[in-house]
Amino acid sequence: MYEIVAREELAPVTKLLEIRAPAVARKAQAGQFVIVRVHEEGERIPLTIADYDRERGTITLVFQEVGKTTMHLGTKQVGECLASFTGPLGLPSEIERYGTVLCVGGGVGIAPIYPIARALREAGNTVLSIIGARSKDLLFWEEKMRAVSDELIVCTDDGSYGRKALVTIPLKEMLEGGRSIDRIWAIGPAIMMKFCALTTQPFGVPLIVSLNSIMVDGTGMCGACRVEVGGQTRFVCVDGPEFDGHQVDWDQLLARQRIYLEQEKQALELWQHGHACGH
């Protein structure tokens, strides 16, 4: 079950896995996520779908190795299986013909923005895209994004590739330049999405973000992922993961993402120690 059929290292800490899950692939749509458990004693983590292939019956995930679970996932090779794989969960992106749309992908957020950009293009939109990463070696899928975008801006924080800028800089310039944009999607680290929200707010252009909260079941049962949007508590797993970026309580989201910081550190140390000893 849930066999890994392809694996790629997109960057030193960014891995791609293509996983056989025909029932999930059959229904998957851009914007949705899956819940993954790497091994029997593993935690359940949400990962946004980076791509799906209904004919092959596979789902593609792209993730950054930031903690014990993602590092463990990163060691999995073709032919190995995951303990569980559940989905597709959450609501799909609202793909319509809006006119001109802008897709912003930051860091590992480039992966989930890709199927959204593709779907928006297929729906007849003019797709402008901005992708960015801290440095050149963390950047991936430039060509894939170029293929589904009418225009693509690439930037890095340190200027090691493309333009030296945070994604919010070209975003602001585009809006200030009077470019008519009907809707914006921004996916990336919460802090990047927060600044995309602050940047776009004055221009009155709708901004959709995909929130990456901590989850357990992913089906509305636990409420771990709850966050205030427009003054109301919403569950990211069933009401999202996409929300109006101008309504999200970003500071609450950022605080809630840090709940287990201490334990995450402890688990990571144990994992790294185990690996250093060759277990």
Binding site: E41, G42, E43, R44, K68, T69, V216, D217, M221, C222, G223, A224, Y260, Q263, E264, Q266, A267, L270
Partner: peptide
């Protein structure tokens, strides 16, 4: 209570860090 109990019972958080869920 659902989240707390699910973490403890289903995910065995009482066995953390031998089990991954905190």
């Amino acid at each position: 209570a659902n989240e707390f109990l699910t973490r403890v019972n289903l995910m065995k958080a009482y066995l953390f860090p031998n089990w991954d869920t905190p």
